[in-house]
């Protein structure tokens, strides 16, 4: 498909003097599972509210499959949404809410919905007021996954789910991907994004800090190398790509390495290296790199 599932250009939202979202420009091609990462308060939910036309942008515009986000009747007939904090009509049972969602939503595959109810182990006969946070989330997830909407917008959808249900969630995302559905997954959980997403956008303090594939994101960052040696300490100063050299203990050195490792290996070759470990940074650490220094506004 030539049209992106989701497009934002210069999307900005200000509440008085607070800028919740600043000049977001983003394309999510159809069929992609896109992770939207950011800490609490970074503007993830604001972005989604703008994409859904629930709030109006101060500046900029958003499109869903080429339809202006403000044209909700056409735009919403192509998407399904799971809010971050699911609130359900307390007097309706799970089954009644699913029925209402199916009738007012973009169309539902009822057989698949029943299958999802089984897989997520939801008791749909209970009134929503008795549901826990996780169960409310399940209702919203089942309603969204059961639609055949080409775009699924999921706002922190697993925060209340247990690990077993998280696995079901990942399976359902995989099935959606296999059907060609686009998934826009907002999250602050790296493991989740790492497990299911093709590409990640990182939002920090209302600004898009980076968009990269998971692999690309890792590649951008340095590896951590630890060596043990006997005898004279290897000289690592002024080696290109080597930084933050420190000695965690007697006869050990630790440093970070960016770019090609050859110069560092040549410098180590002259020493009596007894052990060497190279560790890929976790997304967690990459994430902290983004937020660690400038987390507060």
């Amino acid at each position: 498909m030539s049209r992106p599932a989701l497009r934002a250009t210069g999307l900005t939202k200000r509440y008085g003097r607070l800028t919740a979202l600043d000049d977001l420009t983003l394309d999510v091609p159809a069929g992609e599972v896109f992770g939207f990462l950011g800490p609490n308060g970074a503007g993830k939910s604001t972005t989604i509210r703008l994409l859904l036309g629930l709030a109006r942008p101060t500046a900029g515009q958003a499109w869903i499959f080429g339809v202006a986000a403000s044209d909700v009747v056409r735009a919403h007939s192509q998407l399904a949404y799971v809010p971050a904090d699911v609130a359900l009509w307390p007097q309706l049972t799970g089954a009644e809410i699913l029925h209402l969602q199916a009738r007012t939503g973009p169309g539902t595959d009822e057989a698949y919905r029943d299958e999802l109810v089984e897989r997520f182990a939801l008791d749909p006969s209970k009134p929503a007021r008795t549901y826990s946070t996780g169960n409310r989330q399940k209702v919203a997830l089942i309603a969204a996954f059961a639609t055949r909407a080409p775009l699924l917008v999921l706002d922190e959808p697993t925060s209340g789910l247990d690990p077993l249900m998280e696995r079901e969630f990942r399976t359902a995302v995989g099935a959606a991907r296999d059907r060609g559905q686009t998934v826009f997954l907002s999250s602050h959980q790296l493991s989740e994004v790492e497990a299911v997403c093709d590409r990640v956008g990182i939002l920090r303090a209302g600004r898009l800090a980076d968009v990269a594939t998971i692999q690309g994101l890792r590649g951008l960052h340095r590896s951590e190398v630890t060596v043990s040696y006997a005898g004279a300490e290897p000289v690592l100063s002024a080696i290109p790509g080597v930084e933050a050299v420190d000695a965690p203990g007697e006869g050990r050195l630790r440093f970070t390495l960016t770019g090609p490792p050859a110069p560092a290996l040549r410098a180590l070759a002259g020493a009596d290296v007894t052990a060497m470990t190279v560790r890929e940074p976790s997304l967690e650490e990459i994430f902290l790199d983004y937020y660690g220094t400038e987390s507060a506004r």
Binding site: L52, L54, V72, Y81, P83, G105
Partner: peptide, 15 residues
């Protein structure tokens, strides 16, 4: 304000 309407508003339903 209790966010109950959001799922309806996220459907293809005009304001």
């Amino acid at each position: 304000t209790d966010r109950l309407l959001v799922t309806l508003a996220a459907g293809p339903v005009s304001r």
